[in-house]
């Protein structure tokens, strides 16, 4: 059972994520959108979206740093005050994401116009997010202090998954249902990316930072063709 949940399921989710999102990005690009509903309802969205997104944004990078540099986190946690600061900060952002997602659910349920643009997958998205955030908060509250013990239980497990040498003893031995739910729902979120609006997080426009503001594109740039050796401008076509 543990093998199924912590080895088969994660690999299934990761492969679906990899194949699915690459396929969708390359072949079904028109469907890739954040599907913002701010145009239909902007007021309630403000607090909900800000709390939710900034909460998740911070927590995502918090988890990523903890996974990539566990020693740094442990060193930081060497003093109890610093540990407390880290844990409380993380918990506050967790609460922010939680309140945000509750507000988003409430908005989606009550606003008629937003209901119209709600698909089945949006419901799935909200449910899995609720599971993820509630289980995360519960871990943080009942299994203190996560930022210290994760290095012993979680990092080895997640790393073992990524180096294709799954070690599930540590994670299986943890006596915390919420932690297990948290891990499994995290993998399911990854697996759901190609089938839901989660996709928009992959296309966050970082390249806007270094791009020039104005964009002019030639379909047939005669000057470019004359001054270069290629005779056709732009991407090479698929079959000629």
């Amino acid at each position: 059972m543990n093998y199924l949940l912590f080895v088969v399921f994660p690999y299934a989710c990761l492969s679906i994520f990899l194949i699915g999102s690459i396929y969708r990005y390359k072949n079904r690009a028109f469907t890739v959108s954040s599907l913002s509903s701010q145009f239909l309802e902007g007021k309630k969205l403000f607090l909900a979206s800000q709390l939710f997104h900034w909460g998740l944004f911070t927590l995502f990078f918090g988890h990523l740093i903890a996974f990539l540099f566990p020693r740094a986190i442990l060193a930081w946690n060497g003093q109890p005050v610093r540990l407390l600061i880290l844990e409380v900060t993380a918990f506050v952002f967790g609460l922010s994401a939680f309140i945000g997602v509750i507000l988003l659910v409430w908005r989606r349920m009550t606003d008629r116009r937003v209901q119209i643009v709600t698909s089945k997958m949006d419901v799935v998205v909200l449910l899995v997010l609720l599971t993820q955030i509630i289980s995360g908060l519960s871990v943080a509250y009942y299994n203190r202090w996560g930022s210290s013990w994760f290095a012993a239980f979680l990092t080895p497990y997640v790393r073992s998954i990524f180096v294709f040498d799954p070690q599930i003893d540590a994670i299986a031995s943890v006596n915390s249902l919420s932690l297990k739910i948290h891990v499994i729902s995290a993998f399911s979120i990854i697996g759901l990316i190609p089938f839901t609006r989660f996709m928009h997080f992959l296309v966050y426009p970082v390249d806007y930072i270094w791009r020039s503001y104005q964009q002019v594109m030639w379909n047939w740039d005669r000057r470019d063709i004359r001054t270069s050796r290629k005779w056709r401008q732009g991407e090479p076509s698929k079959n000629n």
């Binding site: 426009p205 806007y208 791009r211 964009q215 002019v216 594109m217 030639w218 379909n219 047939w220």
Partner: peptide, 11 residues
Amino acid sequence: CPSGALYKRGE
């Protein structure tokens, strides 16, 4: 446009 979806045609 953050995505760079908008552009001006050169021609």
